[in-house]
Simulated scan of single mutants.
Amino acid sequence: MGIHNSRLKGRKLKIQNLPENVVQTKSDGAIQSGRYLSSDVDYVGNLHAFHFIKKHLFQSNFSSPIKERLIQGGCKILDVACGSGTWLLDMSTNYENSHFVGLDFQAIYPQEIKPPNLNFIEADILDGLPFPDNEFDFVHQDTMISVLQKNQWEFVLPELVRVTKPGGYIELTETIRMFNSYGPIMQKIFKSFNSFLLKQGVDLNVIINDLETMLGSQQNITKVCRDERTYIVGPNGGKIGLACHENLVDFCSVEMTVQILSSEIGISKEDFKNMIGNGLSDELKKTKPSFTTFRIWTQKR
């Protein structure tokens, strides 16, 4: 499926019922993608931190068996919805003889200070990837289950496969929460976040359950493999738990998050900030809420 035949071309994920001043629009009046936080400086810092948490969990930046090719050089790597570009900056520094390309609908990635083997392109995956077929040795995408609707995944996945070279790899990384040992504050946070996403047509339960199957149903790929890490958020999870706790607090402290979640819960922004700043820390000392970060990858025939 090429970019000229995109079934979703021009159809952006519409954000509805947001609190005042949250909705951002493009010049053509189309609502921006569900990455409603992407232009917030504090959220960019949150993305940087979460990259290194995931790298620590897996002791690597990827799980696909592509390392030897990267070391040898000459590979072309694409990161779709690259956000702040942290994964690419790390990768392009470690593998200087390969070439890296990052793509996102909004330019929050570094545009000047970057390695010479790294380039960024401002484009929207929902318009189709602006590359020919069989272009990249490795195609990577991270943290999109809270952004794309199921029918959008059904467009995006074939695009990822299309631009991958035969013998190349496609890898997706996502994080999900596990429903155990949750206190009332954590329950409020994620219940309100789910409510917000459902209004955007994003059902996390559907995507989480179907993503691996959807990837496996693509044409011209081999078996889908999975690698995952489960960890506790908070002081009961050790050093990684404390880092994840800090990252969660930072995410919940971004102004747009505060506006959205306080509105969904039905409390004032100040009450929400107090709940996060004081109540959440106390709650996490007594509970062991767990998350799982997983990677699924496959090879193109």
Rank of each mutant, 00 (worst) to 15 (best):
A107H: 06
K191F: 14
W153F: 14
K199D: 05
Q106D: 09
V161S: 01
E122A: 04
I145E: 02
P116E: 14
E159D: 08
K188E: 07
F179Y: 15
R162T: 05
M186E: 04
L204Q: 09
N117Y: 14
Q218E: 11
P158A: 11
D127P: 06
N97Q: 12
P166H: 14
D203L: 11
I145P: 01
E212H: 12
S217N: 15
L157R: 14
I113W: 08
I121S: 08
L211H: 06
Q187L: 10
L129I: 01
F155R: 10
E154R: 13
I125P: 03
Q218S: 03
D210T: 05
F196D: 04
E135Q: 13
I113N: 08
G167H: 04
I207T: 07
Q141N: 08
D142A: 08
P110D: 07
Q149L: 01
I125G: 10
L198P: 00
N117L: 13
P130N: 09
F138N: 02
I170M: 11
S98A: 05
L172F: 07
F138Q: 01
I185S: 05
H140Q: 07
M186K: 07
F138T: 00
N209S: 11
P115V: 05
T175W: 01
Y109N: 01
I185K: 13
D203K: 15
P184V: 00
T173K: 15
M186S: 02
P116L: 15
D203H: 14
G183D: 05
G128L: 05
A107V: 00
S192Y: 04
F193M: 03
L126Q: 12
I176G: 07
P184D: 04
A123D: 10
S98R: 15
F190N: 06
N205A: 11
G183I: 09
R177P: 06
S181A: 11
